[in-house]
Design a protein around this nucleic acid. Sequence first.
DNA 1: GGCATCATATATCAATTTGATAGTGGGGGC
DNA 2: GCCCCCACTATCAAATTGATATATGATGCC
Lengths: 186, 186
Amino acid sequence: MDTKTLCLGALSLCDATGYDIKKLFEEAFSHFFSAGYGSIYPALEKLTEEGKVSCRRQEQEKRPDKKIYSLTEAGRAALVAELLDTPPREKLRSEFLVLMFFAHLLPPQRLDEILQQRLDESRATLEILEDLDRREGMPPGIKFTIQYGLATTRAAIECIEAHRESLLHNVYEVGSTAASPSSSVG
Amino acid sequence: MDTKTLCLGALSLCDATGYDIKKLFEEAFSHFFSAGYGSIYPALEKLTEEGKVSCRRQEQEKRPDKKIYSLTEAGRAALVAELLDTPPREKLRSEFLVLMFFAHLLPPQRLDEILQQRLDESRATLEILEDLDRREGMPPGIKFTIQYGLATTRAAIECIEAHRESLLHNVYEVGSTAASPSSSVG
DNA sequence: GGCATCATATATCAATTTGATAGTGGGGGC
DNA sequence: GCCCCCACTATCAAATTGATATATGATGCC
C-alpha cells in the first residue's frame, strides 16, 4: 500500500488539500501509519494525471493558493480495488527494542532513561487514544483501529513496567558489562 | 538508526557475512526491525571505508567468495556512541489497520478474510516468539524483546478475537454500505 | 531420472519514502 | 519587538524497499 492509496482513502472521507491530508494522517492514523509531504504531494500529482482525483484551485490572499482535491469515480473504484487486494500486513520498526537487544552494551543510567522515555511516550499515546475512544458516532472500523491501539499500547506499557526493575538489576550481572564487553551470543 | 548501526550491532555478537547478518535480522529481529540486502551490503561497504569494520575474504570452491566482516575497536566505539543517543522510538506500519479504517468500503466477505488473515499471521508470530522464549541462556535484554513481542502480539490477537463478530455485524448497518457509499466522516 | 525449490553468497536497481528544509505572511504570547 | 506556531505550497539528497540476477549444490517430489 503506497501513499497514493492512502490519499485516495483520505479523499473518500471528504475533499481536502495536501496539507489537510497530512493532518488527517497525524490525527487519525498516527498510531499505525505515517506519511510526509514528500510522498503526499507527488502522490496527489500522479493521481491527478491518472484521473483518479480532480483538483480545483482556490485563490487566497496572502497565502499560497489552496489546491483542493476530490475523489473521482475512477478514483473511488481504484481505491476499492486496491483495498480488495492489499494483504493485511503489519510491520513494527522499533528502535527501542534494538536498544534493548543491545542493552548489555549500555550503562545502567542510559538503560533506565530508555525505559523511562518509552514509558512516557507510550503513556502519551495511550492518552491520545483514550481521548479518541471517548468520541461518539465513530464508524465501527475506525473505532476498532483505536481499540487495537489501546490494547497493544497497554500491553506494551505493562510489559515495560513489569520488567523494568529486573532488567536494571540483571542486564549487567550475568556475562559482560557495559565497560568490558566480551560477548559471544550466536 | 540506520542499517549501518544495525550491522555494527550484529557484528558485535560475532563475525559474519552480509548474508549471515540478514539471517540474524530475520531470526532475532524480525518482529521489530527489518533490513534487506539492498541496505545491508552498501552499509558494510561504507563501514569498511570508515574503518569501523574489517573484512577478510574467504575463498570457497563452487560458491562466491565469503566476505567475513569483523567489528574494529573504532566500530565498537561508534556502535556504543550511536546507542547512547538513539531515541527509543517505535513506529508501526499497519496496512491491516488502514483496511479496518476503511472497512465500510469493503464487502463483508473481504472484511472477514482480512480479520482471519491477520489472526493467522499473528498466531504464527506468537508461536515463533514462544519458541524463542523457551530457549535458555539468553541475555535479559534479548529476553525482554521477546517478552515485549509476546505481550503485544497476544493483546492484538485478543483484540481481534473480541471484536471480530461485532465488526462483521455492525460495519454495514449504521450509515453507508460497501455497495452505496455516501460517507462524510471528518 | 527430471524438475522445482531452497540454501549459500554476492550484488544491483528503479521506485519510493524519509526527514529536513525553504518560502511567505498572519497571529499569539510575553 | 521577538520568536515560534499555523497555514500551504513544494523540493531534495540520502536511505530504504522489494525485486531481481548470477552461480551451484542439495534436497524433495512424482
